[in-house]
Design a protein around this nucleic acid. Structure first.
Lengths: 344, 344
DNA sequence: CCTATTTGCGCAATCGTTTGTTCAAAGTTA
DNA sequence: TAACTTTGAACAAACGATTGCGCAAATAGG
């Protein structure tokens, strides 16, 4: 069943030259090592004909690297991350790197395992959108010699290079917009508490309130993760007490949460923006096509993959693993029809 | 910077035993090879203490396998595939396999490269949702000894195991529904012509027409791929000539196409279902939340990942790579508000 | 024709594991 | 005590590639 594997050794015996020669020719070192043109042509042509392609595993073992970059994201079904993956993959391909993708499922245990796995696969570097609750394993990986780039989330005071969105500004702007439209009681549907993205978005929310001398009611911070269910269930609850709580607007911190909320609103007959105004983090391709076109904070950036890869490659190329400085990308408020103006 | 790597050899010199012994103990072969309990305990405890974790690359080279499964999907930003990936990953983790993910970007060249890449990484098997236009490279991979499972699409007459949706039935049912509602001129927005998914969906469409003695107009088959732009641009065109073409309904073969069409409709002020009825393949989490809740053909199945893995593992376990029989999953029409009843 | 240089290529170690075979020491039996 | 048997572990060869060094044969120089 299994045919003869085309290895460098097979080529060598077929052509009656040494594996050294084959290796050198195939790595473009032919001239440098004074292999004759005739031999070079012979080797390259037969390699091509037999469809030789090097064994990455053997290569990796010998060279202690693999031309592969590990990529860890918390939730691949979240289009925001899927787009990220796509961007990075495309860019990596250009630079002849492959991507080893891991989905941590917002589970810290899985994330830790993945990091260790990737190291054992001798990936040349890791790009990770961390859960964001712990960082020791990342620092350790970095110290063990695996260049790292953090995406989307980062750790304050921890010396790991990152590319992040300016979630604080985005949140500030969104909430200021709500306030400008007369909203005072804004329910804030958060993701995983303690993560940098969440912290920043919360801070933006608080700052907006503060700037307008609005009392911060911590009961308005709702939810515990970035998932659909979280949005759905929490929304059901607050809808029941809408009158009493005097909530007039929702600020959602993630696209999955948003979908959950919208589902709940639909089921409960809540009209947006008439009964409830709504601003959501994460612009989506369908944001404009929903029942009520959604006002969103867009913080995707087409260059993100490009940038991340550049930061990583730069670490490869400088032997002391010097790092480019961190990047914070701007976000943008896209105004549509989901906010009602309460001002007289 | 780079610390001492904890290898089996390092442990050996530290403990004054041979690497053979370490390897045997760590692989649970201690008893079998009559390593004394004392030595076993010593080895396991220090391995644990030093946080030893085997080098997958070396292991792979030696064993010619890697406890890794290659997964190739055409478009990771398509949530349908993202969910697939998530399901397979989760299931793989349970069985102590890792997933090496490749995104072929609906590009046959990339797909071919990915297959070869994965083989060179000595993946134990490949699960692939192929573009579907060519299969020789897949057959070759299979013959070279890499077990394969096709997802979502397959090749008629080609002996490769697959799990597929019953796209034909789904399409038939959807179009029958449109016809039942009085639609005769149904524009069919297709994906990549020639792929099995597309063929089947087209066949379902034709069969539905035929069953109702409706003339098949090939001009109503529109588009060339599964992308957003394809839907958007094509929709713009047909909207301009809606009156003349007498098209009263659209049948879309993919969720991305659908979004493109909806965008075009919105821009052109076309109301669904009043101006145009609409049925789309691919139920999405937001299908219900769109401006007009969409009638869709759902063909996702939560067990798909589970199933695919089982089929692959079964091939691993039987030395002659015997295969389980192919699986065709049912699809389901989810009726919402996007179809207008034209019957008097 | 003898030596020095250049040309063209191969030897063998190495990367971290696994594993078939071997082998010394200790224990048992006669 | 000689001859086995058992116990406990090590030797060394793979896996497929890369690479520093070495070494013949061909060519050039005198």
């Amino acid at each position: 069943m299994k045919g003869q594997e085309i290895t460098i050794q097979y080529l060598a015996t077929q052509l009656g030259v040494s594996i050294t020669t084959i290796s050198r020719v195939l790595n473009g070192m032919g001239e440098q090592y004074r292999i004759s043109k005739k031999t070079i042509d012979l080797v390259t042509s037969t390699a091509e004909k037999l469809n030789y392609s090097p064994n990455h595993i053997a290569k990796g073992l010998r060279l202690k690297k693999s031309s592969t970059i590990g990529l860890i994201v918390p939730d691949i079904t979240n289009t925001w991350f899927a787009q990220l993956v796509q961007g990075i993959e495309k860019e990596a391909r250009k630079h002849h790197y492959n991507i080893f993708l891991c989905n941590s499922n917002d589970d810290l245990k899985v994330e830790k395992k993945s990091v260790s796995l990737l190291q054992n696969w001798m990936v040349d570097g890791i790009i990770i959108a961390p859960i964001g609750l712990e960082y020791e394993h990342l620092v350790k990986a970095s110290n063990r010699g695996t260049p790292l780039v953090l995406l989307d989330r980062f750790f304050e005071g921890v010396d790991l290079p990152y590319i992040s969105s300016n979630d604080y500004e985005g949140s500030l702007e969104a909430n200021q917009y709500l306030i400008d439209n007369g909203h005072i009681r804004i329910a804030c549907f958060q993701g995983i508490p303690g993560t940098s993205a969440n912290n920043q978005r919360i801070n933006g929310y608080k700052q907006a309130l503060d700037n307008n001398s609005i009392y911060f009611d911590e009961n308005l911070i709702i939810g515990t993760d970035f998932g659909f269910q979280n949005g759905y269930i929490s929304a059901k609850k607050i809808i029941k007490t809408l009158k009493k709580s005097k909530i007039t607007a929702i600020f959602s911190m993630g696209n999955q949460i948003t979908l959950g909320i919208l589902k709940a609103c639909k089921e409960e007959g809540i009209n947006i923006p008439n009964d409830l105004s709504f601003v959501s983090f994460d612009e989506q391709i369908y944001s404009d096509l929903l029942l009520t076109p959604l006002t969103t904070v867009s913080h995707m950036n087409e260059n993100l993959g490009d940038l991340a890869l550049k930061m990583l490659l730069h670490q490869f190329e400088t032997e002391n693993h010097s790092r480019l400085k961190n990047v914070v990308l701007n976000s943008k408020l896209i105004i549509r029809d989901s906010v009602k103006n309460l001002n007289p």
